[in-house]
Design a protein around this nucleic acid. Sequence first.
DNA 1: TATGAATGAGCATTCATTCAT
DNA 2: AATGAATGAATGCTCATTCAT
Lengths: 226, 226, 226, 226
Amino acid sequence: MATVRARDDDQKLARKHTLMDAGWTLFKENDGQLPSVAQVVKKAGLAKGTFYLYFKTKEELFLELLSDAVKRFFDNIKTELSAETIDVDAVIDTFVKHVSEDEALIHLGCMLSGVIEQNTEEEVLLKFKLHMVQMLFEVGAIISAAVETAIEEGKPYNPIETGVAARLMLRSYAAFVGIAQMVPPPNSPYIDIPELAPVKLDLQLDTKAIVRALWQDALQACNNPE
Amino acid sequence: MATVRARDDDQKLARKHTLMDAGWTLFKENDGQLPSVAQVVKKAGLAKGTFYLYFKTKEELFLELLSDAVKRFFDNIKTELSAETIDVDAVIDTFVKHVSEDEALIHLGCMLSGVIEQNTEEEVLLKFKLHMVQMLFEVGAIISAAVETAIEEGKPYNPIETGVAARLMLRSYAAFVGIAQMVPPPNSPYIDIPELAPVKLDLQLDTKAIVRALWQDALQACNNPE
Amino acid sequence: MATVRARDDDQKLARKHTLMDAGWTLFKENDGQLPSVAQVVKKAGLAKGTFYLYFKTKEELFLELLSDAVKRFFDNIKTELSAETIDVDAVIDTFVKHVSEDEALIHLGCMLSGVIEQNTEEEVLLKFKLHMVQMLFEVGAIISAAVETAIEEGKPYNPIETGVAARLMLRSYAAFVGIAQMVPPPNSPYIDIPELAPVKLDLQLDTKAIVRALWQDALQACNNPE
Amino acid sequence: MATVRARDDDQKLARKHTLMDAGWTLFKENDGQLPSVAQVVKKAGLAKGTFYLYFKTKEELFLELLSDAVKRFFDNIKTELSAETIDVDAVIDTFVKHVSEDEALIHLGCMLSGVIEQNTEEEVLLKFKLHMVQMLFEVGAIISAAVETAIEEGKPYNPIETGVAARLMLRSYAAFVGIAQMVPPPNSPYIDIPELAPVKLDLQLDTKAIVRALWQDALQACNNPE
DNA sequence: TATGAATGAGCATTCATTCAT
DNA sequence: AATGAATGAATGCTCATTCAT
C-alpha cells in the first residue's frame, strides 16, 4: 500500500495538507468532535505512523487548521479594508462576508481552550496566539488610518486608536463565535420545529446585527467611547 | 457500603442532585472536559450503577445541569427587571451581574452542540430547547412592557416588541458565550505574557461593552431598528 | 462471555491470582520479557478492563508476583532454619534447596530496577522494599541466634550479629541472582554446544559454591570478619 | 544533510563506533532500557537507514557493545595479572577495580538472556559466547600459572587448574552481576530512606566481599577444593 | 553508501454501560 | 433502589524495519 514518498518540502507540505484536509472533512462530518487519528489516516490513505511524522499530537493538526483559517480570515479582511475609504458598513460587510466560508472553523475555535490546548506544546500554542495578536493589530492599524481619512473627508466619525480597533475586532470575532455555536447545524433534527423558529439564529444576519451595533457605537460621533 | 435507599420522590430528587453537584464540581475543576462517570460517582459517594438509575447517559446529567443553570440565569434577570423601571443600563448591569457566577456554565453551553447533543435522547433535548425559548420570551415580554412604561415616562426610547427583545436577549447571550470562551482560564500559562495582554479579554468588561452597544442600538430613538 | 462475578474478598483474591498465574505462565514462556496485558487477559479468559480492576499498571502485577515469591523464599528458609541447630551446610543447603523452584522468578527480580520500577507507584514499591528488608532481618536474627547456640555447643564458629547475617543473606541472594541469569534457559539452542560446556553454569552447583564460600568465610573462627 | 561516505574499512569502523558510542551513552542515561533506534541515530547525527547498514537489528548493536566491554574487562584483568606474582588480594583488587568503570555495562549483561538474545542472529550470538569462553580460559591459564609460581615461592596455596580458575572467574563475574543489579541507581528516590540503609549494597564493597571469599576458598591450603 | 519517509502491528490504558445479586 | 465487577471497543502513540531515491 506504499504511498509515494514526499521528498522535497513542497511534497511534504502537500502530504501535511492531505492529513489536514482529511481531518477537516471528518471534523465537519463529526459535527464538533475531533476525529480519531485512526479515522484521519484512513481517510487520508496513509499509515498511522505517518501522521506523527507531520504532527506531534492529534490536537496539533487541528490547531494548525484553525491557525490557517484564522489567518485566511484576517487576510481577507485586511485586503478588502485597505482598498477603500472606511465606512461602518464596509467593515461590517467585510467581516460578515467571510463568515459563511469559515463556519465550521469557528467550531474548532470553540474547542481551542477546551480540548486543543490540553494536548499541544506550549510553544506551538504561544506562537499561534502571538500570531493572532499581530493580525488583530494589523487590521486595527488599517482601520485606524482609514477612519482618520474618513474624518478628513468630512465623515462624522470619532477617531479610533489602533489598540482600540484591534480590541473591537476581537470583540466582533468573539460575538461571531458565540452566534456560530448557537446556529443549529444543517442536519439538525430541530431545524424545522416551529416553536423553535423565533429564536433560530442566522449566522450572517445576527452576526451583522451585533457587529454593526459594536462599530457604530465606537465610531459615531454622538457616542462616548467606553 | 449501601447507601440508604431513596424511596419517595423528594429523596430521589435529592439523590439526583447529589450526582449533579458532583458532576458540576468536577466539571469546573476539569476546565472544559466532561468528567467520567467513575469520577462523578466517586465524588458523590455512590455506585456506578446508581448513576444510570437517574440518568440515561452521562451527557444527560450535563444537559440537566446546563438547563438548571440557564434557568437560574434567566430567573435572576426576570426578577430584577420586573422590579424597576427600565433603563438601558439596568438591563446591561443585570445581565452582566450574573455572568461571573456562571462562567464555567458557559463552557458547558459551548459543548452542547458538540458533545452533549451527540449522546442525548432527542426528546430530552427538545424539551430543553423549548424551555429555553420560553424563558427568552418571558424576559422579552418583561422588557417590552418596561420599555413602554419608560417611554410614557418620557424616556427617549424606541418601543420594542416581545419577539425582538427575546432575540436581543439571545444575541446578548451569544456574545457573552463568545467572550467567555476567549477569556483565558485563571490557571493559564499565557495569562502573564505581556505581548498577549493588549487582547486579553475581561469577561465582565468586554461582555458589558457588547451588550451595551446592542441594547442602545435597539432602544435609542436616534437609531433605526434593524 | 460473561465470567461469574467475584463478589466477596475471597473470590476477588482468586480472580487476582487467576491474572497473576496467567502473567507468570506467560512470563516463563516468554523467557524474560513481560507479556502484554492483552496476552495476560487472553490467557486468564478475562476482559482487558478487568485487569485494571485488580492492578493499577501492568508492572504492578509482576511486582506482586515477585513479592509473593520472595516472601515464599524467605519463609521457607526461616521455617527450616528455626528447626535445627545451625551448621554452615544447613544454611547453604536450605538456601540452595529453594532455588530451583524459583528460578524463573529470579528473572523477574532482574527486571525490578530496569522495567518494573519505571511504571509502579512509589508507595507500592517502597512497601515491597521495606518488606524485603524486614524479611532479611528476620532471617538474620534466626541465624545469629542459631550460631550463638552452636558456639555454646562447641562448634568453632565466630559469633555473628543480626545485621551482618542479614547482609550476608542479601549477598548470597545477589550471587544467586547473578548465577541464575547466566544459566542458559532449558530451551536454549546453545545448551549442547561442546565448546560452551566448560563454562555452562549449573544453578544449584554454582550457587552452592559461592554461598558456601561466603558463609564459611563469615563463620569460621580462623577468618577475620570483613 | 548527507554525511561524508565511509569508503574504506577504517571509516566504516569509525562510523560503526559512532553509532555504538551514541547507543552506549543513551543506555547509560536511560537507566536500564535499550534506547530506540531513532534516539541512537539522532545522537549519532546519522539517518535511520544508516543504522541498518551496520547492524542487522537494534539488539545487535548492544550485543556488540557488551562484547567490547567484556573484552575490555578481561583484557584489563589479563594485563594486570600477567605482570605480577599472584596473591589473592591481587586478583580481587584487579577484579573489583574494573567494576566501577563498567557498572552500566552490567545492566546490559543482565539483558543478554532477556532482550538481546531474542532478536539477534544465532550465529552472532554464538560467536560472542565462544569469545567469552576463550577469554575466561585465557585468564584462567594466567591465574593457574601464577598460582604455581606462588607455590614454588613458598606461598601456602593450593594449585588450581586452568578450567577451575576459569569457572571461578565466571562465578565472580556472576556474583558481581547480581550485586550490580541490587545497587540502587544514583538517582533512585529510595536511596535516602533510612529503613532501607542497612541493606543498601555498595558495588565495590560487597563485590569485594564475595569475590574474596570465593578465591580464598579455592586457593587457601586449608580448604578442600569443591 | 546514505537517506529519511512510510509503514502498521503493537501497546497500555480508559471508560460508558450492563446486569446479576 | 443500590451495587460494583465485568466488559471490550476505542484511543493516542511508539518503534523496529524497509526501500526508493
